[in-house]
């Protein structure tokens, strides 16, 4: 079986639920990235001086966009999807209708990607208002966030297809998400590190996104970024497929 246009129905369901909690959830969701931006950008920034010739806060702003657009689909397709699948039995209810497991999982991933775009757009608007964005190419950041959202939603959903308990997600965050947040070039460039470390950073998916987001924010493109883009597409394709396969194995008995 393959997913179909019917996955849109699952996306609609999640959108409807999100709309209801929008005004209670949204302020909380955006307080944190802004807090991090101001605390690190202004607080730590006053000690750092300039990075790559710009203010520190200008360096981290695209990184904050990229990293929080990673957190949104990750939360959505780990805890939230898991609760819908196991505790609420929502997936069971839906697969009794003309939708199949692939439709449900794909719909969840598409919704996760949508959350990434919403997060990216809101933070982008705020940091633009602070005057931290210098290029019209930044208008492509939401488009990049679609791909980023699909990538992190797929990786998260693959992990979710394997977990045996909700507590297992702690490992995903401490061993996968948090290291990416710290070593994905969000807060410091890896150019001061040894060559080997710099090469290693290329295996971290968030690094690709921060490099690309930063390039769009500053309007400075270089050829290495094509590699980042191709890696994102490749990893997304592989993990999307793995997530669907994993969930099929888990749910079809």
């Amino acid at each position: 079986m393959r997913f179909s246009r019917r996955s849109y129905r699952v996306w609609q369901r999640n959108r409807d639920v999100f709309r209801q909690v929008l005004w209670t959830e949204l302020p909380g969701a955006f307080a944190e990235p802004l807090l991090v931006l101001l605390a690190m950008g202004i607080g730590l920034g006053s000690f750092v001086g300039t990075v790559n010739g710009g203010r520190y806060i200008e360096f981290i702003a695209p990184g904050i966009i990229a990293s929080y657009a990673m957190f949104s689909p990750t939360f959505e397709c780990t805890w939230a999807s898991y609760v819908r699948m196991t505790h609420q039995k929502t997936f069971d209810a839906i697969i009794a209708t003309p939708l199949n497991v692939d439709d449900v999982v794909a719909g969840e991933i598409f919704w996760g990607a949508t959350r990434a775009v919403i997060t990216a757009v809101v933070i982008l608007v705020v940091v633009s208002a602070f005057g931290l964005i210098h290029s019209l190419w930044a208008l492509l950041i939401p488009v990049l966030a679609v791909l980023e959202g699909l990538m992190f939603a797929s990786i998260a959903m693959f992990y979710t297809s394997l977990v045996t308990s909700i507590y297992t997600f702690n490992y995903y965050f401490t061993l996968v998400v948090t290291p990416m947040f710290f070593f994905g070039e969000v807060f410091f460039p890896l150019s001061s590190f040894p060559e080997t470390v710099q090469r290693l950073s290329w295996v971290i998916p968030l690094t690709w996104v921060t490099k690309l987001t930063r390039a769009l924010a500053n309007g400075e493109w270089y050829s290495g970024l094509w590699v980042a883009l191709v890696m994102m597409v490749g990893v997304t394709a592989v993990f999307f497929w793995l997530a669907l396969r994993g969930m099929r194995r888990r749910l079809i008995k």
Binding site: R6, Q88, K89, A96
Partner: peptide, 30 residues
């Protein structure tokens, strides 16, 4: 599945939605 209505043993109503939304959302899957 389009021809069948299933009443499951375990409640799998959508707790994120109201009573009427449960029905309308479910109909949308069809």
């Amino acid at each position: 599945k389009a021809l069948i209505g299933v009443v499951p043993q375990l409640d799998n109503l959508d707790p994120d939605l109201s009573v009427i939304q449960n029905l309308v959302t479910f109909a949308r899957y069809f």
